[in-house]
Design a protein around this nucleic acid. Structure first.
Lengths: 172, 172
DNA sequence: GCGCCTTCTCTCAACATTGAAATGTTCGAC
DNA sequence: GTCGAACATTTCAATGTTGAGAGAAGGCGC
């Protein structure tokens, strides 16, 4: 088989482990290591890209989540906590700052006064709509080294992996 | 085509975007979102698993890097900084704590006194060798929902993605 | 209605990382 | 040899997250 594929940084790590611990099967590390590495690379790239629009990544995470939730672009603080994978203390802090920036409103839910409803302001909605388009374009560029077939194959394998790990949609 | 594949949490996000912004091609988000999500899931699982051996993940990152570098199990602080993707200030702090724990030694390089050499102690090497075996077994479990062919296919696509992003091995 | 348990958000102290400046070292040019 | 630039690590203040716990509100059994 033609060994034409380039080596990535994970290949080097695997070669080192193979030399030191040949008893260990390196294949699982090859998958998990690459997923971690790719995630870190995307994370940095996306952070830099959002900065062009004066946004931090967590800011887009929140206003984007509100936008994609559809009209009336309003979720509880708890729903935002669940979708962002940070703790409740962090969400309180982030909402504070988005309110200061005028991108979201915070109001107590009159029907359940334990809950706080966070909704996009007109400014927030406008900004989210603008940025998401650039964001999607940029993500497509990041994947441009894969053709459409490879990209879909990759998505399919990752979906299978995630569902196997229990990452199913909370409510279908 | 039999729609037998389960949906994961990213499918839900994509459906939301499609409803709100049908003009945006959701395919790139499907890939990058799943990579991020899978990385976060693995991160948490591995953290919990290392905790069973009384280790934090960053502790294994460092002693594991030293172990796989091979005899004499010694790297400079700068090399460790490069391989762990954190800043130099963080590495100084982490090395401090590993020295306190007796897992590594820190000494100035006599040949270049700007550099600091970090080496595994006998205890550190023993611990790293023990833990890496359990770590590899656990990673294999995390991937057990993919068969060997799918796993290798996934690794291959990720390698292509990473090399396309410029993640080549620094020195071949 | 009355307790009691659960739910939801906010508060706060502890902790870790970042990023820039400081310190000490090497190397090349002159 | 001396000067200055480049380099490697440490220090330190600013910043953000975590995780526990408080406070307020809802819901269920009786």
């Amino acid at each position: 088989m033609a060994e034409s594929a380039e080596h990535d940084s994970v290949d080097r790590v695997l070669a080192q482990w193979n030399a030191e611990r040949p008893d260990i099967d390196p294949a699982p590390m090859g998958v998990i290591g690459r997923i971690s590495r790719a995630a870190a690379t995307f994370d940095k790239a996306l952070r830099d890209n959002f900065a062009k629009y004066g946004l931090q990544r967590w800011e887009f995470d929140i206003i984007g989540t509100l936008l994609r939730s559809g009209p009336p672009y309003r979720l509880t603080a708890g729903q935002l906590t669940a979708s962002t994978m940070v703790t409740s203390g962090a969400i309180t802090n982030r909402i504070d700052r988005l309110v200061d920036r005028g991108l979201v409103d915070r109001e107590t839910d009159p029907d359940n006064r334990r809950q706080v409803l966070i909704s996009l302001t007109a400014d927030g909605r406008k900004l989210a709509n603008e940025v998401v388009a650039h964001h999607a374009t940029y993500e497509a560029e990041l994947l441009s080294h894969l053709d459409a077939g490879e990209r879909d194959q990759l998505a399919g394998l990752l979906r299978k992996l995630l569902t196997g790990l229990g990452d199913t949609t909370p409510k279908d």
